[in-house]
Design a protein around this nucleic acid. Structure first.
Lengths: 168, 168
DNA sequence: TCCAAACCCTTGGAAGTCCAAGTATATTGT
DNA sequence: ACAATATACTTGGACTTCCAAGGGTTTGGA
């Protein structure tokens, strides 16, 4: 999608339409929510572009990053999907690909036959470190968010997520 | 994905990991960006659930809403994909489905053989009105955002989108 | 004029998301 | 002890997104 910037913010325009059609009380939330979706899509595209040379997507990067932080070095899939807050099937999908490229391993749980433990392979750790460095340099350090905005944004969304029972 | 709320915000946890591993200067942006993605996914799920009884998804709703606002009642696909800020192929996909259910029509452009005009059918207008009412009542009016937060959120994301050349 | 470049849209493919349903294993209650 | 229930993961399907590549149409420069 080639970005020749639009002369006018289409979300601001939609907001005005909302107001002029009599839904003024919902207009701000509509605009905020639509902007959140658009912003997520921009960041996701940028992240995926940065990760592509590493053979990763953002979804798979998140799995590696989570495993990299786990004390034991392994994590049940159920726990991982809970922490990443994605459906179990999405994780199955990601892990299938990570396993196919040898970055991750599914191993049996010692006592519970239902559970699969995820383990980072040495190669997975290398890819994770390289990918994270790129992501830090090229995405997070250049987020186009003023430091104050980044903080405020996180706080607003934390209030939202708590209100939505995303966490206690 | 059954939401038994987590005892602790996993994004806040990731942020701490970032700090303790020496990436403190990127930690706030990482947390903000991750929170944006998570929030978008929550809203998208809620929107799709609300729209499902209307036979719509959020992507298709946005197409209908855009057409409902256009003065002439018709819009070139290129213009629509520009305003919705999605790739042309995504719009083709949405319009295929909207056309298959009779909500929308592709008609030939009078003077430019390349261009297809999108037109809302009477049935599409009905579905749009009903769906928008539900979305206003069940999503936007219950966004879990304090009015001040909604405004501030939109402003922060507008600054970001402008800085990212999303619009002028 | 006319051929190359630009433009509009579609097709095919890879990837992600979710849900519903199925399989296998554990746990629980009688 | 055993049947019913719950949990963990996978499979298949629907949907979205993007990209790369192709087919038609229009425009513009030599």
């Amino acid at each position: 999608m080639l970005n020749s910037p639009l002369p006018r913010d289409p979300i601001a325009e939609a907001r005005e339409q909302w107001v002029s059609h009599g839904w003024a009380s919902e207009a701000d939330a509509m605009a905020a929510i639509t902007a959140v979706m658009r912003t997520a899509s921009i960041y996701l595209q940028r992240a995926d572009a940065i990760l592509k040379p590493h053979g990763l997507t953002f979804a798979r990067f998140e799995v590696l990053a989570l495993l990299g932080f786990s004390k034991r070095g392994s994590l049940p899939m159920s726990r991982a999907s809970e922490l990443l807050q994605v459906h179990a099937t999405s994780l199955t999908n990601s892990v299938d690909r990570l396993e196919a490229t040898g970055l991750v391993q599914r191993i049996a749980h010692p006592t519970d036959g239902r559970t699969r433990l995820l383990e980072l392979n040495p190669q997975g750790l290398e890819v994770l470190n390289a990918a994270r460095e790129d992501l830090n340099k090229m995405l997070f350090a250049q987020s186009n968010l003023a430091p104050k905005d980044a903080t405020e944004l996180f706080e607003i969304l934390s209030r939202f997520r708590r209100a939505s029972c995303d966490f206690l």
